[in-house]
Structures are given as structure tokens and as C-alpha cells.
Write a protein that binds this DNA or RNA. Structure first.
Length: 432
RNA sequence: CGGGGCGUGGCGCAGUCUGGUAGCGCACCACACUGGGGGUGUGGUGGUCGCUGGUUCAAAUCCAGCCGUCCCGACCA
């Protein structure tokens, strides 16, 4: 019996955690809907619990990233969240990161910090792991919780202190190799963000505190974005507006609108974006300062490194900022916590309704479709509203109206009314 | 760190000015009705009013200090 219950993904057994009212302290859309749809609950400023539905979405993001990285030849590892501060002293970044680095002491009075990023750890790891140039090129990545003690965390998981990030690090014998690793990662990122299915852009970026030369950012376009991006209306020139403003000296980014594009083609247009990915060429900065030296063909070399981040938890919020309506979240199919919901209407009056739900549920399961069966003893309006705020792409409605006809009512998230489809077509329509 | 809010059951709020038995809506539990867009009724559960100290016969309410949290700014991915 227990096996049977857990096998069925029924709403009556699932912690949905939906709320009818907006929490008072959530300002932006994604934060409001993430709480109302039962994805997250706040623990402390910039620190969140991920509830079952939120965790499911997050896992979908992670798996798309994982596949893209593996396909590109990167190897997954897991590094510790707790790092000895001595490594940060060695790299000289303990001061540069400053208060954003959360420092503490263990019982032996040794100084540690919570990892905001892992250049130090991975470089140190490779000192023992990589001994010959023949092992290069190499790309190692992890998907893990990061902690940055933000001055002002805000907007839910958009700018939180604790967040889930994929970070990858490449090692090459020379600059040409690094350039190649960088382009492979850029290509992998394009595949990953295409697979997620959000509207995004790649822009030139500032390499900031991470250091290094070339760097590009991947932005999900959304009005709530914290970054301003500048595009040429005639070419594919695109840059983080803040960086361009710096080059132009003391211009504020918003004033760039309508100015000539620096590549000489067309005029600049501005759009807001949420940074969800960032790729850097680091060079030998970290390998030198942390003394990662490996044997080359004829002499020792410091590997040329690159690092590549994707904000997994931020993507969840960014997706919502880009796709929502007054009823709630609208997920792309790639991220939806369930692909389809079955809403059981008027369930008490007829035994056939329950039987029909069970039959459809089984059909979908057999076709590997991720389905939620809303079997709760609630009024239809409540169920519809919940499925809509959660943002499930399809809803199948099973009730007295169609129980006799054999047809199935299928409603897409953004449609007002359901369509009647045949039993045979159901699976192919949902699979799209 | 500067400026501005807010802290009262899980959520949204009233009550604070003017001290006198902690309230409302939603959610939750039970029963009945209801049953295709957040339904109705009856009866319930649940709160040291952020914390500490002070004033007072009496403090959610007045005073002081502290803490938490949100927004704007500086900063940052």
C-alpha cells in the first residue's frame, strides 16, 4: 500500500504550499509567485527553503545544465562548501572579497570561510591531481551551494546570499588551448540555454573580482533585470551597458540609448537582463599565485585557466520574471514541476470519474509524462487556481461533462477554455 | 553603512495616537449542505502581540535599548 501511494503523484499527498495572498515583503513578481506557488519559503534574509515543487524545478534546471556540460566533455565533481581561509590568503583574494566572504573558526581556532566560488580549491586540488600536460585539456565542474554575504540580499532567490550554482574550471597548456576551451563552453552554454527555452542574450562583460581577460555574460531578458544591456540595432554587437559606460567615462548607462554603436554599425538600444551565466578567461593568474605547476613537453608550465558559472537557482526566478500572467507562473515545458495536471471535478458524484482519472494518469505515466493528479476534495475553482499559479503547462479536466463522451478536456496554461481532444491524441499533444 | 517602512496564530491585516479580558478575513480540523472558477452554515484548533528592561494597580498600546525583516542608495554575479 505504501508503495502504491508513493507511486501516485497525487495532490492530496504532496506538500503544495500554495498561498492565496501575496506575502507582504515580496516586491517583485518572481518572488511573490515563488512563495504563492509553494516553491520556496524564507528562512532568513537571502536564505531559503526549497519546497517539493521548487526543488523539482531546480532539479530540472540542474539536469539540463549537467547534460550540456557532460556533452561538452566536462567532468562532474563536488567540492566542499567550507574552505580553509589560508587558500584565500595565498591567492590574495581574502581582502579583495572582503566582507562578502563569510569567515568563521573551527574548534581548533582554524580560520575557514564559506565558498563564494572555487578557483582556490580547484587549483589546489589540481596540484595533486594533474601532473602532466598530457592530462590537459581538462574541464571540471560542480553544481553546488554557494554563499556570498551580500551587502543587501533582495528579490527572493534572485539576489540571495545562499544560492545554487554550476561552476566549471578549464585547464589548458597554452592560450590557444584556453581559447578553445572557452569557445567550447560558450557553445555548451548556448545549448543549455536553448534547451531551457528562455529568451536570452550574450553580451560582453566586465570580468570583475574574478579577474582575467575576456568574459561574456548570458542574460535572460526581463524588465525586472538588475543589469542594463546595450545592443546595436544593426549588428550583433551587445555589451553590458555598465561596462560600456565605464569606457565612455562617467556616462550613466541609461544615457547610452540611441547613441551610435561602438562598432560603427547602427544605434544602441537598451534592454534589461538578468545575469544567469558568465564565462571568463582567467589565464595563468590562479595557477601562478597558487603554484599549480605541471610538467610540459620540455619545461614546466602554469596551466591557462577558464571559469564558467551558471546561476541555477537564479534561472528559476528569471524564468518567472520572463513568463507570467496575473494568475501566476507560466513555465517553459523544460522547467515545469509537472508537465500536466489532472483536475478531478465533481469527484464525489460518480465513481467513473475517479476511474477515468486513474486510467488517464496511468496512460501518461506509461508515456513518461510527469503528471500531478489533483484528487483533493476541493472546489474546482480552487484546483484550477492552484494549477495556474503553479504554472503547469497542461490541465486535463475530468468531470461529468465528458465522462460519457470519451473525449478529454485539455486546457493549456494560457488558454481560457479547454479543448476537446481524443484519447489517442492526448499523449502526442502533451509531448508537443 | 546612510535614508525610509514594518514586526500581533501558517498568510494578509485591524487594534497602538487616547493603557483596562487579543480581534477580523483567509487557511486548517469536524459535521452537514454544495459541486465546472477561490461556495454556504454550525461548531472548533491555533498567538509568551520580535526580545530585554523600565513606568504603572494594570502595557500589544507609553519610555529606553537591542534584534529581525523589507524597500531606496553605495556595492556585487
Amino acid at each position: 500500500m505504501l508503495v502504491l501511494l508513493s507511486y501516485f503523484m497525487k495532490a492530496s499527498h504532496l506538500i503544495l504550499g500554495t498561498q492565496r495572498e501575496n506575502p507582504a515583503d515580496a516586491e517583485i513578481i518572481s518572488h511573490q509567485f515563488m512563495i504563492r506557488a509553494g516553491l520556496i519559503r524564507q528562512v532568513s534574509s537571502g536564505i531559503y527553503n526549497w519546497l517539493p515543487l521548487g526543488k523539482k524545478v531546480l532539479q530540472k534546471v540542474e539536469n539540463i545544465i549537467r547534460k550540456g556540460m557532460n556533452d561538452a566533455g566536462a567532468q562532474e565533481i563536488l567540492m566542499p562548501m567550507v574552505q580553509p581561509a589560508s587558500l584565500w590568503e595565498e591567492s590574495g583574494r581574502i581582502d579583495k572579497y572582503g566582507q562578502e566572504l563569510l569567515v568563521f573558526f573551527d574548534r581548533h581556532e582554524n580560520k575557514f570561510c564559506l565558498g563564494p566560488t572555487h578557483e582556490e580549491i580547484i587549483t589546489d586540488l589540481c596540484k595533486n591531481l594533474i601532473t602532466s600536460y598530457k592530462q590537459l585539456p581538462l574541464n571540471l565542474y560542480q553544481i553546488q551551494t554557494k554563499f556570498r554575504d551580500e551587502i543587501r540580499p533582495r528579490f527572493g532567490v534572485m539576489r540571495s546570499r545562499e544560492f545554487i550554482m554550476k561552476d566549471a574550471y578549464s585547464f589548458d597548456i597554452d592560450k590557444e588551448g584556453m581559447d578553445k576551451s572557452y569557445s567550447i563552453m560558450k557553445e555548451a552554454y548556448i545549448q543549455i540555454f536553448d534547451a531551457i527555452g528562455l529568451n536570452y542574450r550574450i553580451v560582453k562583460a566586465d570580468s570583475g573580482a574574478i579577474g582575467g581577460s575576456d568574459s561574456e555574460e548570458f542574460h535572460v531578458l526581463a524588465d525586472a533585470g538588475e543589469d542594463l544591456l546595450a545592443f546595436s540595432d544593426k549588428s550583433d554587437y551587445a555589451i553590458n551597458a555598465e561596462l560600456l559606460a565605464e569606457h565612455k567615462e562617467s556616462k550613466n548607462p541609461a544615457s547610452l540609448e540611441g547613441m551610435p554603436s561602438p562598432d560603427g554599425k547602427g544605434l544602441l538600444k537598451l534592454k534589461r537582463g538578468i545575469e544567469v551565466g558568465h564565462i571568463f578567461k582567467l589565464g595563468s593568474k590562479y595557477s601562478e599565485v597558487l603554484n599549480l605547476k605541471i610538467q610540459g613537453e620540455d619545461k614546466d608550465i602554469y596551466p591557462e585557466m577558464g571559469c564558467y558559472g551558471i546561476g541555477a537557482s537564479r534561472i528559476v526566478a528569471a524564468s518567472i520574471e520572463q513568463n507570467y500572467d496575473d494568475k501566476g507562473i507560466i513555465w517553459p515545458k523544460s522547467l515545469a514541476p509537472f508537465e500536466v495536471a489532472i483536475v478531478e471535478v465533481n469527484q464525489k458524484s460518480k465513481e467513473e470519474i475517479k476511474r477515468k482519472c486513474s486510467e488517464i494518469y496511468q496512460l501518461l505515466k506509461d508515456n513518461k509524462i510527469d503528471v500531478l493528479w489533483d484528487d483533493r476534495d476541493k472546489r474546482p475553482g480552487v484546483k484550477f487556481a492552484d494549477m495556474e499559479v503553479i504554472g503547469i503547462p497542461f490541465t486535463i479536466i475530468i468531470g461529468e461533462r465528458t465522462i460519457e463522451t470519451g473525449e478529454i478536456e485539455l486546457k493549456e496554461r494560457q488558454d481560457e477554455k479547454p479543448k476537446l481532444v481524443s484519447h489517442q491524441d492526448l499523449v502526442s499533444i502533451i509531448k508537443g
